[in-house]
Design a protein around this nucleic acid. Sequence first.
DNA 1: AGAAGGACCTGCACGC
DNA 2: TGCGTGCAGGTCCTTC
Length: 299
Amino acid sequence: MPELPEVETIANGVDRRVRGDTIVSAWFSKHKEPFKTPASTLAAALPAHSILRVHRVGKHIVIDLEPARTPRQSGSRRNTGLQNMQSSHREASTPGQPGPQSQLVVHLGMTGRLLVTAPDLPEPSHTHAVLTLASGRELRFVDPRRFGRLALNTAEAFAGPGREPLTISSGDFAQLFRGRRLAIKAALLNQSLLHGVGNIYADESLFRAGIRPTRAAGRLTRVRLDRLLQSLRTVLKAAIRAGGSSVSDYVDADGEAGFFQIQHRVYGREGQPCRVCGRPIRRIIIGGRSTHFCPRCQT
DNA sequence: AGAAGGACCTGCACGC
DNA sequence: TGCGTGCAGGTCCTTC
């Protein structure tokens, strides 16, 4: 489940591999487009653009593009039966009118993967987009559950739906929750407040801060909110450090290699003893999501 | 407007 | 063995 640390790790790995490369052609599956921007628009806009850099904003991977100086014409992609059956939009590819800057914004959803591969590597099922690069490699978007999204951004730089947990000030953090009566767990998952935090790190940071996930967000004291922000940062940074070591395997080959997980203290440990006090970890539903906490350590 | 709940979607674990 | 069921959860949409 890609949350902030996973997305950051993936973005960094992709950046190392494709920065400076040029998109030669773009292919999109027509199988019920999982894209915010229509595939035909993407197919027309992306070719003949160079990749300036790849970075993370919230849970989004942002690929900064600029018009290539020496545009190359689209080559044809493989002509396997499968490709033909799926049919493609590449016939419509006319190099897009370059803005001063444009961005391909990728959201991985739950099961999305961005792979940088040699073109002859077998294409995984559920491949929804393939960008062929001038270096000969391919940037592939694979997403079995199709919760992922691709979008073209030509307006101002993509800033994400909310605030960055790693850089927000403690004052602004407290301000986010003022007057809100929903559970702090649900508030942490609200991407328009704070973006990048998902179910796992929400549970883990609440445990480390000693806060019960059902507490109304707007009624937590400033001291407890400060502790929460600190815990959140500690957990996210530890996970980023841990993920960095395996990212090259992850994006390079088949994407099967998982991330080195930080040891969960509550997430997925229902019924098992709390690592601090020994009481069984409880699991409840908040905002439709599994929520794990220690009934003794979190108040 | 804020909050809550369901829909989307597929793979997998589980129970019978 | 094989089938049905439930669960996973990020985001969008509808409803209250």
